[in-house]
Amino acid sequence: MASDRFSTAARLKAIGQEAQARVYRAAAARRPGRPGRLTGRAALLALVLCALVIALAYPTRQYIAQRSDIADQRREAQQAKKRVEQLREEKARWQDPEYVRTQAREQLHYVMPGEDGYSVAAPTPSAGAPGAHNRGAGSPGDAGGQAAAAAHRPWYANLWDGVDHADAAATPGR
């Protein structure tokens, strides 16, 4: 009986070695013959990865855009706080009667009782003075005061004056 066991064990060992040799030969035969073959698992993995990238692209973009909007809102809030602080300081200055008097004198040209007020007008350049330009395109007397007055009028008033002058020049009977 001992010889039967030994022979069975020896036979099983030999069968296992032969099977192992066949597996190694089959693996070696597969490698060099088909190096670039895509397996089903690899294709499924690639498909799942592509689906994940596509599914996460839009939420990621939205997240980044929202973070940018939050940063902009914080910046605007900081600027608003600075502006509020400036306005509070200005309000505090206007509570001071001396500051109000100073502003009334400078901006509204007020004069305290008993004081003499003076107003100095800027000199107007004469037509022949150096540095004076002829702005008008009409008659020679048009260059001086009318050009300066035209600069201070609204644009539409200047437009209609131009139309009137052109009309007057086109109709000799006027």
Rank of each mutant, 00 (worst) to 15 (best):
Y63L: 13
Q62R: 03
L56N: 02
Q146F: 13
S119H: 08
D116G: 11
N134Y: 09
S126Y: 00
A132G: 10
R83E: 04
A92C: 06
S126A: 13
E98K: 14
V120D: 04
G114R: 02
Q86S: 12
A104K: 09
R67E: 08
Q73Y: 06
R67L: 07
P59Y: 08
D69M: 03
A80M: 05
A121T: 13
Q79R: 07
A80L: 14
R67W: 04
R135N: 04
K82I: 03
R83W: 01
A143S: 09
D72T: 10
A71K: 10
A148E: 12
Q146K: 12
D72E: 00
P123N: 13
A57M: 01
A77R: 02
G144T: 07
R61C: 03
Q78N: 04
A148I: 11
A80C: 03
Q78E: 09
D72Y: 00
V53T: 08
M112E: 15
A132K: 10
I64Y: 01
P125T: 07
A121F: 01
A57H: 01
E89G: 03
Q66P: 00
V100D: 11
R88A: 03
P113K: 04
R101E: 13
D72N: 01
A137H: 11
R67A: 14
N134R: 15
A143D: 08
A92Q: 09
G128S: 14
A92K: 10
D116S: 10
I64W: 07
D69P: 03
E89L: 13
T102P: 05
S68V: 06
Q62E: 02
V53N: 04
V100K: 13
V100P: 07
Q78C: 02
P130A: 14
P125I: 10
Q107E: 12
K82G: 02
V120H: 01
E85A: 05
E89R: 09
A147W: 07
A149G: 08
Q66M: 12
V100N: 09
Y58V: 05
G144Q: 12
W94K: 05
Y118R: 12
L87S: 04
Q66V: 11
G117P: 01
H133P: 04
Y58E: 03
A143L: 05
L87C: 08
H109Y: 09
R101S: 15
E76D: 03
G144H: 06
A147M: 07
E85Q: 01
